[in-house]
Structures are given as structure tokens and as C-alpha cells.
Amino acid sequence: MSALNPDYLFVFILAAFVGFQLIKKVSPLLHSPLMSLTNAIAAVVIVGAITITGEEGATPLAKTLGFIAVFCATVNLVSGFMITDRMLKMFKPRGK
């Protein structure tokens, strides 16, 4: 596993195209909530943080760094989704 796995690059390229296509036509009204949502989705790195913290044979250093990383990612995740929701609540009357 010391070289680039082309499968991963393939996945990356396809996902990047999907991302471009999805955002291209978004209404300007939704720019702020969208930014907030992508910010929340970036918190998916919590997956990596969980693995590092809980791994069998994790060193104390890895556990410490992982612990802080899980904490930070959770802050990002919780506040990211909640604030997006709060923003969208303001739109509701107009949306209906």
C-alpha cells in the first residue's frame, strides 16, 4: 500500500465531478446554508479520528491527538448541521 491506488483516484474524480454538477445550478439564496452544509459534511473526518483513537495498540500520543481530533470534529459536525437547519427554518414560509 505504498503506491497510489488508481481505484481511489477514480472514485475521487467521479465524486469531484458530481460535486461540480450539483453546485453549479444552486440558487444564490442558498449559498450560506450550502456553505454551512458542506462545512458539516467535512466533519466526516471524524471517521479517521475514531479509528486512530480506538485502534488496538494506539500509542498514548495517537490517543491524545485522536481524542482532540474526535472532539474538534464533533464540534464541527454538531454545530455545522444545527446552524444549517436554523438557517433553513427562516426560509420555510417562503418555500411553501
Binding site: 472514485v11 465524486a15 469531484a16 460535486g19 450539483l22 458542506t38 459534511i41 473526518v45 479517521g48
Partner: peptide, 18 residues
């Protein structure tokens, strides 16, 4: 981890285009 790759690419592309 493919999930990180996909989520990251979505964010990367959408953040940039935004």
C-alpha cells in the same frame, strides 16, 4: 478510506465552485 475520498471530493469541488 473511500468515504473520506468521496465526501472530501464533494466538498472540495462544491466549495471551489461556490
Amino acid at each position: 478510506n473511500k468515504l473520506l475520498i468521496v465526501a472530501g471530493a464533494l466538498d472540495g469541488a462544491s466549495g471551489f465552485i461556490l
